[in-house]
Amino acid sequence: MIDVVLNIVLLLFLLTMAVSILFIRHLMAMAMLFGLYSLLTAALFLVLDAPDVAFTEAAVGTGISTVLMLATLAITGIHKEKRPKIHLPALLLCTLVGGLLVVISLDLPPLGDEQSPALQGVAKHYLEKGKEETGVPNVVTAVLASYRGFDTLGEVAVIFTGGVCVLMLLGHWRQKPSVKVKNKIRITSR
């Protein structure tokens, strides 16, 4: 029971955090709230019996993401957002999609359901045979590194791609990009 209560309380905190991220105009404060938001998510993952995901979220989401956001703020030196306007079409779209989602959610198996097909499918095999077939007691690791190891290879490729892209964008190149852009404009406007 304590799980369920904790779960609901954390979710309510999370929602508050999301709303304040949306509305706060001070960007540095937003970065802090963003870190907190990730930390709360990590806590929720722990409550929902997913410690590996919680570790990753705490390290990657709370740590790296927040640091990156702070670094961006520090480099650009911008701290305030302009006063936002209410965007009616977006509001309408969100209400519509949200309503549709709630309707779909009623058909979903309730939280923690024993009969859910997800638990009966491939996962059952992993839990029952995983240790025997891979020799790893942590089933998440077994699936990550062995059964679905190719996904993990893909994940490495994603990080590599991201790294190359960031390097391409921000590396110390001899030609300053801004100078180059200015030259280009002069040519086209002639």
Partner: peptide, 16 residues
């Protein structure tokens, strides 16, 4: 365990 595995991958992809 399976959704957890998928999300480990997705978190990293998201951060990249």
């Amino acid at each position: 365990p399976l959704p957890q595995v998928l999300m480990l991958t997705a978190i990293v992809v998201g951060v990249a």
